[in-house]
């Protein structure tokens, strides 16, 4: 327990201190990399809610991210062109509007996907979520009005107030960190609530939950929708981080990578998947700088981690509280 607390404090200090330290070292570039890691951490954390706690292996999570990103991109596009979306909706770059809207749209899509998918289990569930993600992917690839496969550039980053400019790297970093922390605290509450218990119960033994009269389908669907909405939020951040949205964000390999991040970090621990995201992106960064053939090392490395470290990095670092 004490060890966990020390680790947590160290982690918080390291995260807060990163921008000034990077500036001081003359390597401000790392602030950008770190921001990207935080955004992926957010996405991985949202996936962990359904994958780790709900036992729902969603192989289409990147689609929710993409939809969130496209909401920001499309509204920003209309704002810059001063045209109307569908002929009656004015565009906007205000983050106060677009970010919640990104969550809403991704959430609605997740609700629809979940409503169909949660009836299935195991490999069927994996595949049907993939199928929906593929549909979304092809939809945006052929959406010529918004760049299709070429993607869409954000005319400007989301506006909040004059005090917060996302153009500034350090500000963006702290915004991403703030959002990540808020989502972490929220998910911590959710998973420890009755809702979270039911979710875990349904994962362990769905029949028992049904017998004691818990409508697991509804709980699962709610969790799936929340996870989708949070992924949409990650998408909004991602669009701002890259200043660009494109269907490549929702390619199935991206969904696969997100699952890898969750497993690598440690399933069902919220912080674990966040760490997994950071570890995975660092690995990619380091290996790809070292050799063009980096994937030949990444593949077996993944295999080894899954084989030998079943509880992921988090499991290796932290003593687990008994549930």
């Amino acid at each position: 327990m004490v060890r966990n607390r020390i680790l947590g404090t160290l982690l918080a200090i390291a995260l807060l201190a990163l921008p000034p330290v990077a500036q001081a070292l003359g390597e401000p570039f790392y602030i950008g990399i770190a921001s990207r890691m935080l955004v992926f951490a957010l996405a991985a954390m949202s996936l962990d809610l359904i994958l780790g706690y709900g036992g729902m292996v969603c192989f289409g999570h990147a689609a929710f991210i993409g939809i969130g990103a496209y909401v920001v991109g499309i509204l920003g596009h209309h704002a810059a062109e001063e045209t109307l979306l569908l002929g009656f909706i004015p565009g906007t770059s205000s983050g106060w509007i677009t970010w919640p809207l990104a969550m809403l749209c991704a959430g609605i899509f997740a609700f629809l996907v979940g409503a169909v998918s949660i009836r299935t289990q195991g490999l069927y569930f994996i595949m049907i979520t993939l199928a929906f993600a593929q549909m979304a992917y092809f939809f945006f690839v052929t959406l010529k009005g918004y760049g299709g496969d070429d993607g869409l550039r954000l005319p400007q980053r989301s506006q909040f107030s004059d005090l917060i400019s996302l153009r500034d790297k350090t500000t963006f970093y702290y915004v991403a960190l703030g959002v990540l922390t808020a989502v972490y605290l929220l998910l911590l509450r959710v998973t420890r609530s009755r809702f979270g218990m039911v979710l875990r119960g349904a994962k362990e033994n769905e029949r028992r939950m049904l017998h004691i009269g818990v409508p697991t389908y509804r709980y699962r669907l709610a969790a799936f929708t929340i996870a989708g909405a949070l992924a949409g939020l990650a998408g909004a951040l991602m669009a701002n981080q890259a200043n660009f949205v494109s269907p490549a964000m929702m390619h199935w390999t991206r969904s696969g990578e997100l699952i890898v991040m969750v497993i690598l970090g440690g399933v069902g621990s919220l912080l674990g998947p966040a760490i997994g995201a950071v570890a995975f992106l660092s690995l990619e960064e380091v290996l790809s700088a070292y050799t063009e053939h980096w994937q030949i090392a990444l593949g077996p490395l993944l295999l080894a981690v899954i084989y030998f470290a079943r509880r992921g990095i988090y499991g290796a670092l932290v003593t687990r509280r008994v549930l």
């Binding site: 993607g151 981080q241 890259a242 494109s246």
Partner: peptide, 28 residues
């Protein structure tokens, strides 16, 4: 992937201080 391209470009511009960026094959 465009987002990975952006990240690489930022790294090369800010950290490596390259004079030219070239080689890109995909329009997106």
């Amino acid at each position: 992937k465009p987002d990975i391209g952006v990240q690489l470009a930022e790294k090369m511009v800010e950290r490596d201080k390259v004079d030219v960026i070239t080689g890109i094959n995909f329009s997106n």
